[in-house]
Measured scan of single mutants.
Amino acid sequence: MISLIAALAVDRVIGMENAMPWNLPADLAWFKRNTLNKPVIMGRHTWESIGRPLPGRKNIILSSQPGTDDRVTWVKSVDEAIAACGDVPEIMVIGGGRVYEQFLPKAQKLYLTHIDAEVEGDTHFPDYEPDDWESVFSEFHDADAQNSHSYCFEILERR
């Protein structure tokens, strides 16, 4: 099963200049909980913004210009990325925008964090048809001392 995991502000903004323009430790914990011990696929820009392999996960970098870091697996196509994951129950696609666009048609599940923030962004989550998805989990949280904005975790499964 292919799943996408993303944090989205208003207007589906997911990033600005290779960074997330908010401070939500709870979302980072949600991300870790849902990706640990699963292969993660990301684009080169996302890889560069993280700066290191995510521990406890097979890191697969999709790029037309593969790098030389041998701590991760470099691939040039969506099919190659899927094959590099091996026989696993769930593959997690973690961004960025172009990689989400490439995998959305193949995805069966979306793990979304909806952030109540209007922020400037240069990267967006692809538009998706809500009628194609069923919400199977939703959990709202107010902003607090650690988390700069209110947010809602949601899991959607393709109908």
Rank of each mutant, 00 (worst) to 15 (best):
E101K: 07
G51T: 14
M16N: 02
K38V: 05
K106T: 12
A143T: 06
A145K: 08
L24Y: 02
S138H: 05
L112A: 02
R33T: 15
H114Y: 10
A143D: 08
R57S: 01
N59M: 06
P130Y: 08
H114T: 10
I14S: 01
S64A: 15
Q146T: 08
F140Q: 10
P105C: 10
L4P: 02
E118L: 11
L36W: 07
E118M: 10
D11S: 08
A6Q: 02
D69C: 13
I94T: 03
Q146N: 08
S148D: 03
I14K: 14
P53D: 10
E154P: 01
G86A: 09
W74E: 01
A143L: 07
E48N: 13
L156K: 12
W47G: 00
E154S: 14
Q65E: 14
T73G: 09
V75P: 02
Q65W: 15
Y100C: 02
H149I: 02
R52L: 13
P105L: 09
I61L: 12
A9V: 08
F140D: 11
S77E: 15
S77V: 08
V78M: 15
W47L: 15
G15L: 02
W47H: 14
N23P: 04
W74L: 06
E48L: 15
D87C: 06
I82R: 04
Q108M: 09
L62M: 13
Y111W: 04
G121R: 00
V78D: 14
A19T: 10
E118G: 13
C85L: 13
D69Q: 07
V10D: 06
S150E: 06
E17R: 01
E154R: 14
P66H: 06
V75A: 07
C152R: 13
H124G: 11
R158D: 01
R52G: 15
D132T: 13
S135H: 08
D70M: 13
Q108W: 06
L28E: 00
W30H: 15
H124Y: 03
N147M: 04
D127C: 13
G67E: 15
N18R: 08
P89I: 07
V75K: 09
W133I: 00
S135G: 11
P105T: 11
W74D: 00
R71Y: 07
L28R: 00
A143R: 10
G15P: 02
R52W: 12
W30G: 04
N23W: 06
S77K: 14
A145R: 06
Q102S: 08
G51V: 11
E90R: 00
H124M: 07
